[in-house]
């Protein structure tokens, strides 16, 4: 699997976009690419403008795309970007696992000075 080059700014936009429950819900709804913004907006107890703004944040983060379909523009979740976000989170876990391995190595070459199990 090849990880695309992702800038820090890209990553921040992705995580900022994902940090809101409405936006996460929109992502789940839009996986199939069946709805336009108006149809999405009908599902939430907020104004069309508010939903449109959430969609714009998701689009800016590359998490959704808009596809022309006749006179409509359908909102579709970009699965690849979601995968990258997931990979980053798994990566953070692996980062810590690797750090602990380095700590183990460090402790092995520098014996403790006091106490502990023998």
């Amino acid at each position: 699997m090849v990880v695309d080059q992702v800038s820090d700014a890209d990553i921040d936009r992705i995580f900022h976009a994902l940090a809101d429950s409405t936006r996460r819900d929109i992502l789940a709804l839009a996986i199939g690419g069946r709805y336009n913004v108006s149809e999405l907006a009908e599902r939430y107890p907020m104004s069309f403008a508010a939903v449109q703004k959430h969609v714009a944040v998701l689009e800016g983060a590359g998490l959704i795309t808009k596809e022309p379909r006749g006179r409509q523009r359908l909102v579709r979740t970009d699965v690849d970007t979601l995968q990258r976000a997931r990979e980053l989170l798994d990566g953070i876990e692996e980062l810590w696992r690797a750090r602990v391995e380095r700590i183990d190595d460090l402790l092995a070459i520098e014996p403790r000075t006091t106490g502990g199990k023998q």
Binding site: V3, A19, R24, L82, A85, R86, G91
Partner: peptide, 24 residues
């Protein structure tokens, strides 16, 4: 950012997502 993980889990993209760790 862990909210992102929730979204990803909820969306069912659990398998096949582990990247090459050195690249991550």
């Amino acid at each position: 950012s862990l909210a992102g993980m929730e979204a990803v889990l909820a969306s069912g993209f659990e398998e096949g997502m582990r990247a090459v760790l050195s690249q991550i």
